[in-house]
Design a binder for these strands. Structure first.
Lengths: 103, 103
DNA sequence: CGGTATCCAACAAGATACTG
DNA sequence: CAGTATCTTGTTGGATACCG
């Protein structure tokens, strides 16, 4: 529980299931996250061995985040969480998620 | 995530998968939890519709907690979490759990 | 037995501004 | 682009003692 705890780690990991993503790309995918929180959470996930941080010495800078093997092994957990959430979040006044991204 | 967040909710729910349990029974099953925290968490779980609290007007008092239908529907999530945890917690210096309760 | 009450420390998280 | 720095707040969780 500790590893995916907090307000953001779950969604960060979930988005990374789709593949590698850069800092601001993740940020855009997660409404409301501040750069400080995103940095914090990414660093903790990295320390826990769930994600990999690849820095490219370029201008402009490029930093890519991806799941490690261990991170990918969390997929069943993340999928179970999401499917439960999809099936249950109408109860909390939230709008259901798009089944597939709207065209 | 919000529903199973926090330090105790996960384990409380997990223990209730085994069936109905009384307050002090749960408390004994979860080392380190204070009565205040246990009450808090149980009340939140109840408000979120995941557990049922049954009070029997007896002396001495008896209060039984059990999962609601919705709470039971979390079983796949809890099982996924536990199996991931069992497979991975040696990395964090913790002792592996007993495969089956020791005789 | 199954809790409450009170107080307090620690941390998570947010707002805002700035930088190599 | 990918962060840092600083400050502030709200919430979580813990210690301890007591109650019907």
């Amino acid at each position: 529980m500790r590893l995916i705890d907090g307000k953001w780690k779950g969604v960060i990991l979930f988005h990374l299931l789709d593949g590698t993503a850069r800092f601001n790309a993740i940020r855009r995918r997660i409404p409301g996250v501040t750069p400080r929180m995103l940095t914090n959470q990414l660093r903790e996930l990295e320390q826990d061995g769930l994600i990999l941080r690849q820095v490219y010495a370029e201008v402009p800078p490029r930093v890519e985040y991806s799941l490690t093997e261990r991170g990918r092994s969390l997929a069943p957990v993340l999928e179970a969480l999401r499917s439960w959430g999809d099936a249950n979040l109408t109860l909390f006044g939230a709008a259901p998620p798009p089944a597939v991204a709207a065209a």
